[in-house]
Design a protein around this nucleic acid. Structure first.
Length: 837
RNA sequence: GGGUUCGUAGCUCAGUUGGCUAGAGCAUCUGGCUUACAUCCAGGAGGUCGGAGGUUCAAGUCCUCCCGAACCCACCA
C-alpha cells in the first residue's frame, strides 16, 4: 500500500538503481527497433551541474518516449576537456599558491591539469543521474580518450592532405594575460570610457604652392602608443578636404620614418578629423587596409603586452606606460591638437576574466572554410556525399566546407527548431571566415606537427632550463648553450615562422624534431563528437546510429559547435551528423534575468531536487518553455508541479486501495482481476478475449457492455489525449504535451472521473465496482506511461507498486520505462472504430 | 550598420499551418477539513491579445507603419 505522501528521497535513488541494474538504458533493450539516438552535449569534465544542464531533460524526454515506442534507443553521455576553460580554472588555483603556468614546463603542466580534472570528474555524472537521465553510461566518452585523440589527429591529417589546413601570420585576438589567442566568437566587447587623442602628423613638402597653408594632418586615436607601428595614414577617396594630400607623405612623429597618405573606402569621413592612422600590426581594420595597399606590418607590442624592439626608446615599457610617455613627448612638440577626455568606445576583451585583447600578428593554424576543395584520397566529394539533394547542388565536383554546411540546412537535411535560427545560421554560413584552430595553451590535444630543428633555425623557443629558469631565443642560438634534450624536456612554447617546414605525424618522426606546442581548439575535437563517440568509421554503433536523430543544445553554441559538427560530419562521412537541431531555452531566474554569480541569482538545481524531487523540477522545465525563448524557473512553479506529483501519487493510491478491496470480493464473484469476461458479440474467438482490460486497445475497451457512459467518456478522452500528445511530441512541442497530459490527468481523470466512480466503488454491486476498477486501472496505467518521459521516478515507483499488487498480463514488463507506449485508435471524425478483423 | 525575437489576465507565460464563447500556473474572491489528496475540491472575478491601418467569410495568428523591450552578428579608429 502506498504511503500518504510520495517519499521521493527514498524512491528516486532506488528506482534509478533498478533501471541501471537491469540495463534499461542500453539500446539493446530494444535490439530489433529502429535506431534513435541523441548525443548528450558533453559538459566540462571538471564541472558540476548547473541549471543549464537541466534542460537536457528534453533529451531524456525524447529518449524515454522513443524507447517506449520500441525504438533501439541510445542516449550517449560524455564529457569535454574544455581546453581554455579548464586551464583558466587551474591557473586560478595555481595563483592561490603564488604559482603560474610559467613555473612549469609544458608536459608537467599538462599532467598537473590532467590530475586535477581526473580528481574532479565523475561528479557531474552522479548529478545527471539524480535528474533521472537515462544515459547509457557504458558508452561514456571523454574528449581526451585515446580513441578520440586518434580520430581528431586523423581528421587533421586528412584535412591537411586535402589542402584545407594552412598556417598564416594573421592578426589574431591575443590575450597577453592568458598568453593565448581567441577566435572572434570568443571575444566580448565592453563599453569603456577613455580618451580620444587628436595627433598631428607633420606634412613633408609644405613648401609646395598648394599646400603651404597646411603643415600637418590630424588623426584621432584611442591608442597613441600604436603610432610607432603606423605604416600609413588613410583618408576617404571622396573626401574633399584631403583630396590633394592623397599620395603625399607625412612624418611619423617620434620616429625617423615617413609614411604615405593613402585613400580607402573603409575610412569614415565623419569620425574625428576624417583622417586615420594605419597600424596593420595592431588593429583589425588597419590590417585589412594594410593588406589592400601592400603596407608593411610593424609590430610594436610583444606577447607579454610590453613594447618591443621596434618601439625604440619605449622598448620594455607596458602599453600604458608607453602611452603616457608618448603623449607627453608629442605634447612637448605641440603635436597633440586636443584630447577628448570623455570618449566612450567599445573595447574587446576575453570572454573569461574580461582582460583586454591585444590584436597581434602571429602564426596560427587555420582551416579553410570557404575555398572549394576536392579530397586527395578516397572518392570525390560528389560521389561521397550521400544525399541526392546535396549532391545536385554541390555542382559537378567541388564545394567548400561552408557551402556544404549551408546546403545541409537549406536542403532540409537538417531541420533547426525554432525555424528562425535557420536564418541566423545562413547568415553566419554565408559570411564564414577561416577557422583558427590553434590555441596557445597546454590543456588539449597537441597539434601533431613536427619541426625539423636543422631546417628551421628560427623556431622561437621558450623553455625552463635545468635550473628552472625561463630561457627564450631561437633554436639555433639556444643549441649553442643547451642540449636538445634539455630544451625539449623543459619546453614551454614554440613559435614557428609561417614559412617553417613541418611534418604531420602522430609520432616523433626523428631525433632532431620538436613538436608544435599549440593545441587544437576545443571545438575542433568536440566538432567531431558524433564521429568519435559512435566509433567512425567501422564501429557498429556508427553504422546503427549515424546520423543521430536530434541534437539538442542551447542556441549560444550554434556556431561554435553545431555548425562545426555539421561541416566536419559532412566532410568525413558525406552525411549530416543529425537530422534535427533543437535549440532549447535558456533557464533564467523567476524575473527572467540571466543567472550569474555576480548577480547572486544562481539556483543550484540539486537544491531543488532535494526539496521538491527531480520529477517536479523536470516538469517545471518542460512546461511553459518554448524553444529559443527563455524559461523562468521559480520556486512557485516547481511547487506547483510537486503538487502534481503528489496528485498522481494519491490518485494511484486511491485506485490501488480499491483494487485491493475488490480482490477479496472478486474471488467470491469468481472473477479474476483484471481479466474480463464479457466481449462483444462476434468477437468471442478473438485472441483478445482472455486478455485483461489494461492490455486491450482502447477502441475495444469502450465497447465493453458493462461500461457506463462515464467509463466510455474517460476512455474516449484518454484516446484523444494520446493522439494529441503523440502529435505534440512528434513536432517537438514538449510544453504542450506536458500541459495536455497534466490537464487530462488532473481534471478529467481525477476531478471528474474518479469522483464519478465513487458511487460504484462504495456501492453494493460488485460487478459494477469491478468494471470501474478495471477502467480506473486501465486509464491510470496509460497515464503513467504518458507521464513517464516527463516524470520518470514517480511513475515508475507507482508502476512497481501495481506490479507488486498483481498487475497481470504478458505485456507488463518489469519496468515501466521499457514498457510500450499507449496506442490510440481514433478515426478522423473522433469516433471509435473497430479495426478490420 | 545588418539581422532576429518579444509585447496576451495582477505576476510568469502557452496559444500548431488564420477557424467554435482567447488558455494554464501562481496570486485574488466565495463556499467546502466530502474516508485518494487541504500539496485538496466546487465556483467566481479579472484580457478592446502594445498602438494604428490593411488583407480575409474569418486575425492573438498574415502584411505595412509607429511605440516599447530583449538578443545575435559586424564594428567605431
Amino acid at each position: 500500500m502506498l504511503s500518504k505522501r510520495p517519499d521521493f528521497h527514498e524512491y528516486e535513488p532506488r528506482i534509478y538503481k533498478l533501471w541501471e541494474e537491469n540495463d534499461c538504458f542500453k539500446p539493446e533493450a530494444n535490439p530489433k527497433g529502429k535506431p534513435f539516438s541523441i548525443l548528450l552535449p558533453p559538459p566540462n569534465a571538471n564541472a558540476s551541474l548547473h541549471v543549464g544542464h537541466t534542460m537536457y531533460v528534453i533529451e531524456d524526454l525524447l529518449i524515454r518516449w522513443h524507447r517506449m515506442l520500441g525504438d533501439k534507443t541510445l542516449w550517449l553521455p560524455g564529457s569535454d576537456h574544455a581546453g581554455f576553460e579548464t586551464q583558466y580554472v587551474y591557473e586560478n588555483i595555481l595563483a592561490e599558491k603564488n604559482q603560474s603556468r610559467f613555473d612549469f614546463d609544458r608536459d608537467t603542466l599538462y599532467k598537473k591539469i590532467d590530475g586535477f580534472v581526473r580528481k574532479n570528474s565523475g561528479l557531474i555524472q552522479k548529478q545527471l543521474r539524480r535528474l533521472g537521465f537515462s544515459l547509457d553510461w557504458s558508452r561514456d566518452t571523454f574528449t581526451l580518450d585515446k580513441k578520440v585523440v586518434e580520430q581528431v589527429c586523423m581528421t587533421f591529417r586528412k584535412m591537411h592532405a586535402d589542402g584545407l589546413v594552412y598556417r598564416d601570420n594573421y592578426l589574431v585576438n591575443y590575450c597577453p594575460h592568458f598568453g593565448t589567442t581567441f577566435a572572434d566568437l570568443e571575444v566580448k566587447y565592453v563599453e569603456k570610457k577613455g580618451k580620444l587623442y587628436y595627433l598631428r602628423y607633420p606634412l613633408i613638402d609644405t613648401k609646395s604652392y598648394q599646400l603651404k597653408a597646411i603643415s600637418y594632418i590630424t588623426v584621432a586615436t584611442t591608442r597613441p602608443e600604436t603610432m610607432l607601428g603606423d605604416t600609413a595614414m588613410a583618408v576617404h577617396p571622396d573626401d574633399k578636404r584631403y583630396q590633394k594630400l592623397i599620395g603625399r607623405t607625412v612624418t611619423l612623429p617620434l620616429t625617423d620614418r615617413e609614411i604615405p597618405v593613402i585613400a580607402d573606402n573603409e575610412v569614415d569621413r565623419e569620425f574625428g578629423s576624417g583622417a586615420v592612422k594605419i597600424t596593420p600590426a595592431h588593429d583589425t581594420t588597419d590590417f585589412e587596409i594594410g593588406k589592400r595597399h601592400g603596407l608593411e606590418v610593424i609590430s610594436v607590442i610583444d606577447f607579454a603586452g610590453k613594447m618591443n624592439k621596434n618601439a625604440g626608446e619605449y622598448q620594455g615599457l607596458s602599453v600604458q606606460e608607453a602611452r603616457n610617455k608618448i603623449v607627453a613627448n608629442l605634447s612637448r612638440q605641440d603635436l597633440i591638437e586636443k584630447v577628448d577626455e570623455n570618449y566612450t568606445h567599445r573595447v574587446s576583451v576575453s570572454y573569461k576574466g574580461e582582460h583586454p585583447i591585444e590584436p597581434m600578428v602571429m602564426p596560427n593554424w587555420y582551416i579553410k572554410t570557404s575555398e572549394k576543395f576536392q579530397p586527395k584520397a578516397g572518392p570525390p566529394l560528389a560521389e561521397k556525399v550521400k544525399s541526392e539533394k546535396l549532391k545536385k547542388d554541390l555542382g559537378v565536383e567541388e564545394a567548400s566546407l561552408g557551402e556544404m554546411g549551408l546546403l545541409a540546412v537549406k536542403k532540409k537535411l537538417i531541420k533547426i527548431i525554432p525555424e528562425r535560427f535557420e536564418k541566423t545560421y545562413y547568415q553566419w554560413m554565408n559570411n564564414i571566415k577561416p577557422w583558427p584552430i590553434s590555441r596557445q595553451i597546454v590543456w588539449g590535444i597537441r597539434i601533431p606537427a613536427w619541426y625539423d630543428i636543422d631546417k628551421n633555425p628560427h623556431l622561437q623557443i621558450t623553455f625552463l632550463n635545468e635550473h628552472k629558469e625561463i630561457v627564450s631565443g631561437t633554436i639555433k642560438e639556444l643549441l649553442k648553450k643547451h642540449k636538445l634534450e634539455e630544451i625539449e624536456s623543459g619546453l614551454q612554447t614554440l613559435i614557428a615562422p609561417v614559412a617553417a617546414e613541418y611534418i604531420i605525424d602522430e609520432k616523433k618522426p626523428g631525433n632532431r624534431f620538436l613538436q608544435e606546442t599549440d593545441v587544437f581548439d576545443t571545438w575542433f575535437s568536440s566538432g567531431q563528437w558524433p564521429l568519435v563517440t559512435l566509433g567512425y568509421p567501422n564501429n557498429s554503433d556508427f553504422k546503427d546510429f549515424y546520423p543521430t536523430a536530434v541534437l539538442d543544445t542551447m542556441w549560444d553554441i550554434l556556431f561554435f559547435w553545431v555548425a562545426r559538427m555539421i561541416m566536419l560530419g559532412l566532410y568525413l562521412t558525406g552525411d549530416v551528423p543529425f537530422e534535427t537541431v533543437y535549440l532549447h531555452s535558456m533557464v533564467t531566474d523567476e524575473k527572467g534575468a540571466k543567472m550569474s554569480k555576480s548577480k547572486g541569482n544562481v539556483i543550484d538545481p540539486l537544491d531543488i531536487v532535494d526539496e521538491y524531487g527531480a520529477d517536479a523540477l523536470r516538469m517545471s522545465l518542460l512546461v511553459g518553455s518554448a524553444p529559443g525563448n527563455p524559461v523562468a524557473l521559480s520556486m512557485e512553479k516547481v511547487k506547483g508541479y510537486r503538487n502534481f506529483v503528489t496528485k498522481v501519487w494519491n490518485a494511484s493510491r486511491f485506485v490501488l486501495s480499491h483494487k485491493a478491496k475488490l480482490k477479496v470480493k472478486s474471488q467470491n464473484l469468481k472473477v479474476e482481476f483484471p481479466a474480463y469476461a464479457k466481449v462483444p458479440a462476434g468477437r468471442q474467438n478473438s485472441k483478445l478475449t482472455s486478455r485483461p482490460i489494461t492490455e486491450l486497445p482502447n477502441h475495444l475497451v469502450t465497447k465493453l457492455p458493462n461500461l457506463t457512459p462515464e467509463d466510455q467518456n474517460i476512455l474516449t478522452k484518454l484516446n484523444k489525449t494520446i493522439k494529441t500528445i503523440n502529435s505534440h511530441l512528434k513536432h517537438f512541442r514538449f510544453s504542450q504535451a506536458g500541459e495536455d497530459i497534466y490537464n487530462f490527468f488532473w481534471h478529467d481523470y481525477c476531478d471528474t472521473y474518479i469522483e464519478q466512480t465513487k458511487e460504484r466503488l462504495y456501492g453494493e454491486d460488485q460487478e459494477a465496482a469491478w468494471a470501474a476498477v478495471c477502467v480506473l486501472t486501465k486509464v491510470l496505467i496509460d497515464s503513467l506511461k504518458l507521464l513517464h518521459p516527463f516524470m520518470p521516478f514517480v511513475t515508475e515507483e507507482i508502476y512497481q507498486k501495481f506490479r507488486e499488487a498483481g498487475l497481470e498480463g504478458k505485456e507488463y514488463k518489469k519496468e515501466l520505462m521499457i514498457s510500450s507506449w499507449p496506442k490510440s485508435n481514433i478515426s478522423a471524425n473522433n469516433t471509435l472504430v473497430w479495426p478490420n478483423p
